[in-house]
Structures are given as C-alpha cells and as structure tokens.
Amino acid sequence: MRQHPLFYALAAIVLWASLATLGASVAALPPFFTVGVSLMVGSLCAIRHWRQWRVPPATLLLGVVGLFGYHFFLFVAFRLAPAVEANLLNYLWPLLIVLLSPVLLPGYHLNTRHILGALAGFVGAALVVTGGKLSIDLTALPGYGCAALAALLWAGYSLLTKRVPAFPTAAIGGFCLLSGALSLACHALMEPAVHPSASQWLTLLLLGAGPMGLAFFLWDKALKLGDPRQIGALSYLTPLLSTLLLVASGRGQLGPTTGAAIALIVGGALAGTVDWKGLRRR
C-alpha cells in the first residue's frame, strides 16, 4: 500500500523540528563544519544505492544549489543580521512553496484555502520565532536579503525537483555528499579549526542521520508524490514543533503568544491541506 505523501512530509517535518534541539548541543562548533559533517553523514543514508547517485548535470546542480545554497545563505544571514529576524525570513519558504507552485509547475493553481492557510501559518510562525516582538535593523539589510534568498532557494529547489527529469530519491545522497564537501571547504576557508568532543561527534551523527539526512529523502518522496501547495501549508508545523521540543528539553520556554501561534499554525495547516468541499460531498 502506497503511503500518503503527507505522511512523508510530516515525517520530514518532525525530523527537522529536532534540528534546533540537536544544534544547541553543538552550538560551539563552527556552523559550516556542523553542516558539512552532518551532510556527509546524511549521504550515508543512501550509500547502498550509490549507483543511483548518477544524475544529469542540471539535476545535480539543482540539488547542490538547494542543499548547499540554502544553508550557505542562511548562515551568512545569521552573521549579518539579528538571528530572530533572519530566522523569521527563513520561514518564508513554506509560503513561497505555496505561492510559487502555479508559477513553476504547470497544472497547479491557487484557491482561497491555499492562500489563507499559508498566510495563517506564516503569521503563526512569526509569533513563535519572534515571541511577538520584532525589531528591524536597517544596517542588517544585506543579512535580511540573504535570509530571504535562502528561503527562495529552498522553495525553488523543492518545486523544481518536479520539473527536472525523474530521478531516484536515493540520488539525494549524492546531493548531500557534494553539498557537505562544499560546506567543509567553506569551513576550511572561513572558520577556525576545531576538535569536537566525543559527545559532539555523537550529536553530529544524529544530525546527519535525522534532520540533515533522512529528512531530505522523505521530503523528496513527499514532493514527488504530493501536492506542493498542501505540503507548503503543512510545513509551518516545523517552527512550532521545534519550539515545543526546545521547551521539553529545557532549552526554551513558551511565551504569552504561544496559544495564538498554535491556533494559527494548526488552523493554517488544516485549511491548506484538507479538501473541505470534498469531505462534505462524501
């Protein structure tokens, strides 16, 4: 029995939600080193099918721009802009997936529930990320631009994988390997050398096995089988689940706006993914 594409998307979202909690354990390590090692580990998820990593150059370029380009500009954004505002702009990617679906993919159009669901999710994510407090620093405009570009790259990658010639999901392993190598090259050029502890190495392995590895394969499977408008709306569960995991681990706390954020994100996800007219007809 074929699994529903939203199952794959939700599994990827749950894994991505663990990224902040695991990342907090290796926060002392340089970011490009963390990403590079994690992606290299993530490529091992498909090492048994390495022969399927051979794809056309354009497909490989798309994969590397998606994985490496997204993380590169996101980390540059965190260097040039306040983390909260940069992270908020980063969470434009689910909204962009919804809005760009009819632009990049033939046969898709937007209706009211898709747009309202995505907008509600973004407002909810904004409340989660900012705690209801937002300050714009005009000197950080380059950083804001990098964060928005990162979101655009991830949304574009997610949608354009449906436009390139069909490729096996196992090929994501090749994308991870090359993107990881480029990240480690950035580490060598831009960051100081490090010597992780045993516990940090373990966390890097967990990052590579989960949110920086298996999640990308599940995401690819979801997008190949599913409707990107629904998947985009569902994706706003990521910052919500991430925050709840941080709270559960003792690394975060819930603010007064959390209830409203939960209502907006869950409501937006339901609005964007459930065909209410179809349910009424049945």
Rank of each mutant, 00 (worst) to 15 (best):
L178R: 01
F167L: 01
A83W: 06
R229H: 10
G252M: 08
G210E: 03
S158L: 08
W50H: 11
L127S: 14
L44M: 10
V64N: 11
D137P: 00
A27S: 15
V76N: 10
T203G: 07
L241R: 00
A198Y: 09
G69H: 03
N111W: 09
A126F: 07
L149P: 01
R281D: 13
Y8V: 06
V76D: 10
L279N: 08
V41S: 07
L234R: 09
L241N: 01
L223R: 01
A248E: 05
T258K: 02
S183H: 05
L22Q: 07
A166V: 13
L105K: 04
G213T: 00
L29Y: 11
K162R: 15
L119T: 04
L116T: 14
L62N: 12
P165Q: 01
L218Y: 11
A170F: 07
L100N: 12
S38N: 03
L39S: 10
R54N: 09
A185N: 00
P165A: 02
K133E: 15
G143V: 05
A125K: 07
A81T: 05
L223E: 08
S43I: 04
F175A: 11
I47R: 01
V55G: 11
Y91P: 00
S199T: 14
N90F: 12
H4V: 06
A24N: 14
A171D: 05
S101T: 15
G272A: 07
V274S: 05
P211G: 13
L270H: 11
K224M: 13
A155K: 03
L204D: 05
L92N: 03
A260L: 12
N87K: 03
W276N: 05
L22P: 10
V194C: 14
T257Q: 12
L240T: 03
V194Q: 12
C186K: 02
A86H: 03
S158H: 13
V26R: 13
L153A: 09
R2W: 08
T21I: 06
H114R: 02
V164L: 14
M1N: 12
A271P: 00
N87R: 04
R51S: 12
L270Q: 11
F217H: 15
P106H: 04
F175T: 10
L206F: 14
T21P: 00
N111S: 13
L237C: 07
L149T: 11
W154C: 03
I172W: 00
L15F: 15
L104G: 09
L234T: 09
A11F: 08
I13P: 03
V129E: 01
V98Y: 04
T273P: 02
L189A: 15
T273R: 06
L61P: 12
V103K: 10
G226Y: 07
